[in-house]
């Protein structure tokens, strides 16, 4: 006997579980669209998480906490940008080093937050609308950050399709030499994209430590930065599909918990594999059909100023 009353709250949980991934992956989409592969996402996220939580504990408003979390991610990204864009350090290794660094630094800073808990993050309840059955809680009963993440998806779709700046970012990512020849400052544009990616990862991390579970413990991102990186690939570097991928991954993660709750006799390890396997299968189906994968052609290639 399955009571379907759990469905709407389950969908809400999916949205909350997916939102950190949405922010982080969207940021990385912009970074990679400009041609830079930053594998330091996990490190930027966890710094956002610790700084966001620290601000809340220090009594700042949630808004301020998110601003500082974004700045923390941005600071980490700046380090990465200086090393890879100005000093031509290898981006893959630098990104991984950034992850090690961020996990260590956040643990060092965050060790003082043991056993501390922040209050629940307020939800935006739009009067009347959020009281509607089914659609009310599903569409109008979230916290402000969920709406920000959705708006960001729309904004980025529009940015890449319809703005000159978006076209320039794509041009830099697709052929940096040509973009440079036309007269664009490739390094500056890439730096901007890297910083944006860092800020968004910081927001994603802070969503975890301020909204989803208002606490901080070292390594609490637990690999979500890596999932976000995979989702960028899943999305073929398209913001709209990031949302799809994040909700798919988050959705299956939540649904498998529900399946367990019903007492279905499948070992939990197999159920826990499902989100990963499903993402592979769906991407395989999509890419088997599409001829082109849409990876920025200069992705991961160092641009060197010659003249």
């Amino acid at each position: 006997m399955m009571d379907l009353g759990f469905l709407i709250p389950a969908l809400q949980s999916i949205i909350i579980a997916s939102t950190p991934l949405v922010f982080t992956a969207l940021g990385e989409v912009v970074t990679e669209r400009a041609g830079v592969l930053n594998l330091g996402v996990e490190g930027m996220m966890i710094m956002g998480a610790v700084v966001g939580f620290a601000c809340v504990i220090a009594g700042f408003s949630p808004f301020t906490a998110f601003v500082f979390a974004a700045l923390a991610g941005l600071g980490m990204a700046l380090l990465f940008g200086i090393m890879t864009l100005l000093l031509y350090a290898n981006a893959v290794a630098t990104g991984l080093a950034l992850t090690l660094f961020g996990l260590g630094l956040s643990a060092l800073v965050g060790s003082q937050f043991v056993g501390l808990s922040a209050g629940a993050f307020p939800k935006v309840s739009i009067p009347v609308l959020s009281d509607l059955p089914v659609v009310g809680p599903l569409l109008f009963g979230h916290d402000a950050l969920v709406y920000v993440s959705l708006a960001l998806v729309v904004a980025l779709i529009w940015f890449f399709k319809h703005t000159r700046a978006g076209l320039i970012v794509r041009a830099v990512g697709d052929d940096h030499d040509a973009a440079h020849a036309i007269g664009y400052n490739v390094i500056a544009i890439r730096m901007g994209a890297v910083l944006f990616g860092g800020a968004m990862a910081g927001l994603g991390g802070a969503y975890l430590s301020v909204v989803q579970t208002p606490l901080f413990i070292e390594n609490m991102t637990a690999g979500r930065g890596w999932i976000a990186l995979a989702l960028v690939v899943f999305a073929s570097w398209r913001p709209g599909r990031v949302l799809l991928g994040a909700y798919l991954f988050g959705g299956i993660s939540i649904i498998q918990l529900h399946v367990q709750g019903f007492g279905i006799a499948i070992p939990s390890q197999i159920l826990s594999m499902l989100p990963y396997l499903a993402t592979i299968v769906v991407l395989t189906v999509i890419s088997a059909r599409a001829a082109q994968q849409g990876a920025p052609r200069s992705l991961g290639k160092t641009f060197k100023v010659t003249r």
Binding site: P9, A10, S13, P20, L208, T213, M220, A222, I254
Partner: peptide, 11 residues
């Protein structure tokens, strides 16, 4: 994994 534990609690 606070996030996952929280998700399980909600489920």
């Amino acid at each position: 994994d606070p996030g996952k534990e929280g998700d399980a609690a909600k489920a």
